[in-house]
Design a binder for these strands. Structure first.
Length: 286
DNA sequence: ATGTCTGTAGTATACAGA
């Protein structure tokens, strides 16, 4: 089963690339972020094209900003939009952003997340980001973290190895100790950062600013993560960033992250087997 | 270091967010 996540930076403007990518990579479950469409506009634009490709769809949008979706051809059940007790920005008086959608797909509880950016550490949005991450942690803790898959734009670089120039980012959002601690609280539920586990010590980025030729120079950040609980962690066969999807004309500023899982035994996830320490055949990066 | 892209408002070009 192939699981993928992609911050498309507007599903409407990414329409041709998104459909071509689905045909090329054939993911079974897709987490999308920053669709920037209302539910109705997403349905109008995508429902028939996705149905033709065998996908069930759940979208949670608000129009201009944010917007997340799940596509699945291995079942899409028990959809939850948003988080319990989700914080809002700005408080008071606003309603929750469209930043999380959860469903059961192929026996896993999959959440597509678009974590708040935070802007700068002294901006009120930064506190909102930390509260939002805590609400995500609380939702996962109240469920069954072993079956969880959390995939999306975390807007956090887990370590300095996940930033092209750590010195330049000191004091900036995405790398502060409080953000990394909040990510650590998620991981403490038993989640695995499967791309980093597959590529320890490698230069692996998922986001490159449009400006200043950053992609061409591979000056990026790894902020799009696939975090999986124990059930899926023992089934990981490949985990990589689809850097090719960032190339050419009209790309998103994020690349997809793709994770391949062995099939679960019939009706039973089975005993958890730790991932092999020697990578098997893996796609070539760069 | 802030060079780009996106959507919106509104009709040309500005603004905000990332």
């Amino acid at each position: 089963m192939r699981v993928a996540t992609w911050n498309v930076n507007s599903a409407k403007s990414r329409l041709p690339r998104l459909l071509a990518w689905l045909d090329q990579r054939a993911p079974d479950v897709v987490c999308l972020q920053e669709t920037k469409l209302s539910d109705q506009a997403f349905a109008t634009t995508f429902d028939s094209a996705l149905a033709e490709r065998g996908y069930q769809v759940a979208h949670f949008g608000q129009g201009r900003w944010n917007g997340v979706a799940l596509l699945s051809r291995v079942g899409l059940d028990d959809v939850d939009r948003g988080l319990p007790d989700e914080p809002c920005f700005p408080e008071p008086g606003s309603s929750p952003d469209a930043r999380a959608i959860t469903a059961t797909c192929g026996g896993l509880r999959v959440t597509s997340v678009y974590v708040p950016n935070g802007r700068t550490p002294d901006d009120p949005h930064y506190g909102y980001k930390l509260r939002w991450l805590d609400a995500l942690r609380a939702m996962l803790a109240s469920g069954t973290p072993g079956s969880a898959v959390v995939a999306g734009d975390m807007n956090i670089a887990p370590t300095d190895a996940d930033v092209w120039d750590p010195d330049l980012f000191v004091g900036s959002t995405h790398v502060t100790p409080a953000e990394r601690a909040a990510l650590g609280e998620l991981m403490a539920l038993g989640l695995h950062d499967v791309v980093r586990e597959r590529w320890p010590g490698h230069r692996v980025f998922s986001y490159w600013d449009y400006r200043a030729g950053r992609f061409h120079q591979d000056k990026g950040m790894r902020i799009d993560l696939v975090l999986v609980g124990a059930d899926a962690a023992g089934r990981v066969q490949a985990a990589w960033v689809d850097r090719a999807a960032r190339k050419g004309s009209g790309p998103s500023d994020h690349a997809p992250v793709i994770v391949d899982l062995d099939e679960a035994p019939d009706g039973d996830i089975g005993p958890v087997v730790p991932p092999p320490t020697t990578p098997a055949k893996l796609p070539h990066l760069s």
